[in-house]
Design a protein around this nucleic acid. Structure first.
Length: 487
RNA sequence: GGCGGCGUAGCCAAGCGGUAAGGCGACGGCCUGCAAAGCCGUGAAUCCGGGGUUCGAAUCCCCGCGCCGCCUCCA
């Protein structure tokens, strides 16, 4: 089996990935807290780990992928009280919105998607273990984890306990023995949702659910634990403390953290108000364009969002689909071997097969993999757009290319999954609708112009072309006919 | 202040010690009824600045400058 290299936040190095018991791999990823609409950042997280999930399977691993949903916490309670909605209804609404967006982005569902509220017994049992082992204490209906008792605290984020103590920004509570201690269980105030527990009515703290649920579904030691960079501290640090204190075993072998989406260089977030919701983006751009955009940069780097950035990627994706469109249209009409150009294409294809895989093996370098894809596409486009007919051998080559695209690009990157016909149909209609244009009318004009050109009525043909151009419609005449798209 | 990261062509972005992928855009020639597209080709004397290590550095080390993230909920 080929070896994947992954950057491990625990060691701050790129390491060869060796699961605990191959070919099984257990992955746990922090999903969302369902209290508001998902934005591009949430989508990036889901898409990155989706590619990891797919690629590990491609390499031959048997992957169990767990991605949780936090469905009970302070933000959810606040929001539901503010809006006067039952908290479960609020969670349902945003979870559905999240799922809808991911489905359109062709993100595979995880093996399990556990919710905190459905694992209260496991969470309570976990907390009881921590109390028994002396790592946690009850205080006025709350339960806290005593950070000082866990000597490895800070090993993930590179923080030292003494330095953290001087930090004054941590919420101080008289119930805590130490400001660093964090809540495992919070007692319910009147009107708040609650569950019965040995410490009275209350709800779990945020960090404990991941320790309890990951253990339930994946065991004491996870092969991979993922999430955004912003979760390193305190969330993942606290998870390590809880889980290792409870089991005495290493919690995670590889911590994988991705970079955040920025806008003008600043983190996209609710508090800055600079976020774009997935509903908005999906309305505006084809899901594959968004997915491709999210893969154009290495997962650990920040990705700056701008509409221009997505537009650039859209053009590249358009070309990909135009190429595929012509591929479908070409059929063998003559005997014969490969032309010089086709031979070059053949070479490019075998280079691509190797490079594509190598790129992903190197710490999941999707940006590089896409680079190779575009390079192959360039050669393909040149071949396909310049000839009205091909030979049988050349047709076989095209079939081979399509097969490679299916096996690699579709399967692992999760893009180029639409049929070219369908892609262009939805894309043209959507863009025309935005402009208030009628699809049929454009189709008729394009056909009329083609007819006029055949009859050498160039005056009429040019008039139509000018008219369409002024409406933002781009025409491309090729040996196979006229192709058009909306800018 | 502590910890971490980033700075590569007009814009986006790979590159991780062996002589600068790819995308968007630009330019020249060919092709074309004319454009677009296509074809062929051009484009970073050089990787924020300055030192150092090395036969060799965008890549490693040191010092600056600039930007960002985390240290509080956050993908």
């Amino acid at each position: 089996m080929k070896k994947l290299k992954l950057y491990n936040t625990l060691t701050r190095k790129v390491e060869v990935f060796e699961p605990l018991s191959p070919p099984e791999v257990g992955i746990y990823v922090c999903g969302i807290t369902a209290y508001d609409s998902p934005h591009l950042g949430h989508a990036r997280s889901a898409v990155i780990f989706d590619v990891l999930y797919r690629f590990l399977q491609y390499l031959g691993y048997k992957v169990k992928y767990v991605r949780n949903i936090t469905d009970i916490d302070d933000k959810i309670i606040n929001r539901s009280q503010k809006e006067g909605i039952f908290w479960r209804d609020l969670v349902k609404k945003y979870t559905e919105e999240y799922h809808r967006a991911l489905e359109r982005l062709n993100v595979l569902p995880p093996s399990v998607e556990p919710k905190a509220s459905e694992h209260i017994p496991e969470i309570i049992a976990f907390i009881e273990t921590l109390i028994q082992k002396g790592f946690a204490y009850e205080s006025g209906g709350d339960v806290y984890f005593e950070v000082k008792k866990f000597k490895d605290y800070g090993k993930l984020s590179g923080r030292k306990i003494d330095e953290l103590i001087s930090g004054v920004r941590i919420e101080v509570s008289e119930k805590k023995r130490d400001p660093l201690d964090f809540a495992l269980w919070k007692s319910a105030k009147p009107g708040e949702p609650f569950w019965e527990s040995p410490w009275g009515k209350g709800r779990p703290g945020w960090h404990i659910e991941c320790s309890a649920m990951s253990q339930k579904y994946l065991g004491d030691t996870l092969d991979i634990h993922g999430g955004g960079l912003d979760l390193i501290f305190p969330h993942h640090e606290n998870e390590i403390a809880q889980s290792e204190a409870a089991t005495g075993k290493p919690f995670v072998r590889y911590f994988v953290h991705h970079g955040l989406i920025t806008v003008n260089g600043e983190k996209m977030s609710k508090s800055l108000g600079n976020f774009v919701t997935m509903d908005y983006l999906l309305e505006k751009f084809h899901p594959e364009v968004i997915r491709t955009f999210l893969l154009t940069k290495h997962y650990r780097s920040p990705l700056d969002y701008s509409e221009k950035g997505i537009k650039d990627v859209e053009k590249a994706v358009y070309r990909l689909y135009e190429t595929l469109y012509w591929c479908e249209k070409l059929s063998p009409q003559k005997e014969g071997l490969l032309s010089k150009k086709a031979r070059r294409l053949e070479k490019k294809l075998s280079a691509f097969e190797e490079e594509f895989e190598n790129s992903l093996l190197e710490d999941l370098n999707t940006a590089k993999a896409l680079g190779h894809l575009f390079s192959l596409e360039n050669e393909l486009y040149g071949f396909v757009s310049s000839r009205p007919s091909i030979t049988q051998e050349e047709a076989n080559l095209l079939e081979k290319i399509k097969e490679v695209l299916r096996d690699k690009v579709q399967k692992v990157l999760g893009i180029l999954v639409a049929s070219p016909e369908a892609f262009w149909e939805t894309e043209r209609e959507k863009k025309l609708k935005e402009k208030g244009e009628d699809f049929q009318r454009i189709e008729i004009l394009v056909k009329e112009r083609e007819k006029a050109r055949k009859e050498k009525d160039f005056e009429k043909a040019d008039k139509i072309r000018d008219e369409l151009e002024s409406e933002g419609i781009v025409l491309k005449d090729t040996p196979l006919g006229t192709f058009w798209y909306v800018e």
